[in-house]
Each structure stands twice: as C-alpha cells, then as structure tokens.
Design a protein around this nucleic acid. Sequence first.
RNA 1: CGGGGCGUAGCGCAGCCUGGUUAGCGCGUCGGUUUUGGGAACCGAAGGCCGGCGGUUCGAAUCCGCCCGCCCCGACCA
Length: 584
Amino acid sequence: MAGEVIYYSKALIPTLRETPAEAELISHKLMLRAGMIRKLAAGIYNYLPLGYRVLNKLCRIIREEMNRAGAQELLLAALNPAELWRESGRWELYGPELMRLEDRHNRQLCLGPTHEEVITDLVRREVRSYRQLPLNLYQIQTKFRDEIRPRFGLIRGREFLMKDGYSFDRDDASVEETYKLMYQAYRRIFERCGLRFSVVEADTGAIGGSFSHEFMVLANSGEEQIVSCPSCGYAANLERTESLSPDSISYQQVEEGVSDNLLNLEKVSTPNVKTVEEVCGFMDSQPQELVKTLIIMADGEPVLALLRGDHEINLNKLQKLLGAKDLELASPETIERVTQAPVGFAGPVSVTGYRLIADLVTKGMRNFIAGANENDAHYRGVNWGRDAEPEQFADLRLSKTGDLCCRCRSALTFSRGIEVGHIFKLGTKYSEALGATYLDDQSKKRALVMGCYGIGVSRTMAAAIEQSYDRYGIIWPVALAPFQVIVLMVDPLDEQVRDIAVHMANSLKAAGLEALLDDRDERPGIKFKDSDLIGVPLRVTVGVRDLKSGVVEIKARKTGQSCKVSPEHALEKVLELLKGLQAE
RNA sequence: CGGGGCGUAGCGCAGCCUGGUUAGCGCGUCGGUUUUGGGAACCGAAGGCCGGCGGUUCGAAUCCGCCCGCCCCGACCA
C-alpha cells in the first residue's frame, strides 16, 4: 500500500465537542463528532475526508476479494428508465420505496435501489453462448431507497453506498459453485475488516434450498435478532428460526404424568377477563395451559392461528405456510365478526368456515383453556379431536430464550446484529422476465441462472463503530482506520519536536503506512481528545518533555497501553504493534 | 401512514406559558496577553430575517392558523 502523510493543520476534520441533537445511535453520534459525516437531509449524508477514507478502505477490501473470487467490476447507470422496471414487473411491485422521477419529456425514471434489471438487460444484449459463462459482475455505487422512516444515521439511509454483484451461470450446479465462491469471499471480506460477525440462513422465498445467507455484524444496537447454536453452528434470523420448545409437552401432562385423562369441556364465566395474563390470574393457571387464538388477515381472508399462551406468533412462518402475499392482524371489527365476541374471547371450539392452524407445540396439549367465542366466557378442559380440530399443526411460533436447536438439541443463543451483507441465488426470475438467454452446448436456448450478492458499504462503516468504541470515541480496527498512526506534536513550535515528528511521519509513509501528523498549534489536551475521538489505532506522541529523556510515547487506542522508545526505534515498534493489532 | 417532540449565532441550549424598548448563556470562531503532556485564563470583537408565510395586536421569538424541515416511538401481545 502506498504510504501517506496528512498534516492535520491542513485537513478538514471538523470534530465536535458536543453531540448534535439529531443523533441517537452511537455510531451516528461518533461519526458526526469525529467529523466523518454531515447530514444534508433526512437519511442523506455527506462524507467528509475522514469518513470517505474509511469508506475507501472498505471498498478496497471488497474489490480485492471480489476480484480474487473472479468477479469483474463495472459501473451501472444509477438513473433507470421505467420501461426496464416494467418489464420485470417491479415498477408496480416495488412500492413507494422506489425513488421515481420524470424528465423534461415526462418520461418516467427511477433511481436504482438495486440493479437486477439493469444488469440483466446488459447481459442479455451481450451474452449469447455458454462459452461466455459463468460471468460474475459487480459494482460499488450509491443506491436510493425512499425509506418509510430513515433512521440510525448511516444504518438506514435513503441514499447509501452499496456493493452489488450479479452472477450468471448455465445451470443450478454452476450457480451453486459461484454461490460458494461468493460465500467464501464475503467471509474473507468481513474477516479482513476485523469485524465480529455471524452468517445466518436467510429466507429463500419461493426458490427454496439453502441458497441465501445474511452476514450480520454483531452489535447490541442491531436491528436484527439472530439465533445461533454454539454447538452445531446453526444460525438464523429470529423470524426464520426453527427451534424446539424445551417444554413442549403439556403442562397438565407434566403435572399429572398422564396423557389422556380427558376432562369434560366446561364453560367458565370470565367477565372482562381478556388477556392471557388476566385469564391465568382469574383461573389460577399458567400461560402454558392456555391456547390463544389469533385472528390474522391473510390477503383479506381471516385465518385463526392457535398458539400456546406463553408463545408468540411468527408471522413469517404463517405467511410461508399459507403462501399469502400480505399478512396483518385482524381489526377488532373483523375479530368480532369472526368470533361473534369482543376481542379477548377467541377460541377454536365450534369454529366453522374459517381456516384453523395450530402451532405444533399445542398438539400435545390436553385439557387446555381457550376463549369461548362468546363475550365474557372461556372454556377449560378443551381437547383436540373432541372439541376442536385444526386444519393442520405447523410450526408457527417465534423462537424464544431457552429454546433448543432443532438439529442438535443444544440451547440456542440469542443476539443482535446489523445486516451488512446478503447473498442469494436468484435463479431465473429476472432472466426469464427479461428474456436473458444463452445457447447451451446442444444449441438449445436456456435462461441464465442468476445469483446476487450485496454489501451495504456505508452501513458496514457504521456497524464497525457500533461494535468498537468507548466513552472517548471510535476504536477502528486497523484495516478500516482512516490512518493507522497519528503522530502528535505536543509542542509544534519547538524545532526539535517538529523535526522528529515530521521525520517519524515520513518514515511511516515510506513503510507504506498512512499517518496523520497533528501539527496544529493547539493545546495538548485538545489534540489528545481528538486523537481518541477519531479512533486512530496507534498514536506516537512527540513532545519536549519526553525528548529530554530521548524518547517518544507510543500508545494503542484500543488498550490504552503505552510505551516509550527512542525516536530511532519508534518505527520498528509501531510496525510490531500494528502487526499485533492486525493479528487479533 | 398514526402518535409524540423539536426548529432561536457554527454546535449545545435558555427566553415563549404570563406579548413590551439593546434576544441571552456555554462552547466554538477572530485579535491580543499570559499559558502549554488530557478539551486553559483574562481582555476585546465578529456572528441572529428567533424555520417560512399569513393572521391577531399600538407592539409578536412569544398568541392563533397553514406550510416546510428535523428527531423519536409505533404499524406481531386478543
């Protein structure tokens, strides 16, 4: 890498002592304070030199790994004609998140939120033969999404930097190879960034198979909940997690050690007792003895979903099961219409005309409590078969703490993450819609099999900070740091200090490192604070005090550990420390 | 989209409820003196269409209406 020295006195690094009121999230606050970014409008940011340096570090790593994996970089148009999006059907499907605009001739355009259409169009024009395959193309570009609610600074913006890649293969076997290559490339990218991350299985939608993974940077502020198994390596998004309830036999069975001692169905008057908690309190029972009934609107049709009282529904699972496009909780009016009772008294007994789906866990339950579909009444002693029978038992529940891995039965771990990468096999969805075909070795026309691979570059920068900071500021991993070293002159007016510091910075540069030379005529305190805030991994402090003893101080940002060495040995020491930091 | 909050100097805020004469404070900025190893002290100075438009009033940062911008929460608990 080419070395560099930047003089702080000439650099635009407008640090802030106080946090602008607009920021909530740590990464957002610190990036503003460190002078890395400034907001232009809601969800839209300018990158100042310091922030841009970090972004470029990320891009460089991404490029190197993508190229190594055989992908080629290109740059696609950001402004897309509507016709192309109409061809794929997404002009209508994408919804208000698509930034649409018109030109002076009233032609409709959009700003690309992703580029399947554009790349597929390009490839369908240029690729004809299997001999040209496989082809793997990527770009790093600003994307536009008109988010409902931009928030969290760079984590959810309306304009953001993204690496998006698309692969074109002859068949499934071939795309699987490409997919594996990309998976490995992604692992390498995030490893090289020095990030702690987890790869989770993601929803594959209609395509099926294990062909989608999300790369999550682990951070407590993460939007996504991740469930992982420490013993077998299974990891998934909470919404997609399949897990075993540790107590999936009924409470009654556990209590009595019998399974088929069926009690009579008994209607109990429960005036104004509606929630699970209220019912339990009223009947002196546990949520595990109760089956709750949720009325869900699936594409406008009410469906009754049954879950154990202490479990939550996972709408994604239900949606998948039903094959529905749109799911939402039914309105109170609908609930009254369906159950003939106010909200709070729904149950499975004597329901007709609606689909009834019960969670697997409820299958083993006996003599449970449920709403009576009647104002102020519940049943107790409800049993499947005799009193009610769902159309099917299926996995509907949201995994919860204490659940076991369904592969190896170990206890699952719950954590939070920020999605920074997503890879998936697209199949022929876009190639068929846009007619992107090739001739195979039998002269037969076939649709290209696609994969797509994204990395949120600007978001990754924010995620790195979420994962590594302290009360003084950012702590960059060496690979992403805007500079590896800051050389700080305590007394910039002193000739000897200046000479030694400049020489130090230049020798760092000669060694291929990027150095920030703080030559500002500021008080030492300010310079130390700024140095900590912007998070440069190593600091070399040159001042008259230490020079009297013939030394300079080298301090690691992360550990706070420092040592004093002679100026002649400083370079060597810095290189050694950096090596140690990178090896972590 | 629903709910809540905010908009006053580059940044952080007070003033507004209860209208009144030069609109304040801290930080930052500029000049000066003294300082100089963890955000200095003193002296002096610059910097505001109080988000915009309209209304009420003798008089509006302050009251009312509309608009714009920004932030937060929510859109899975029967």
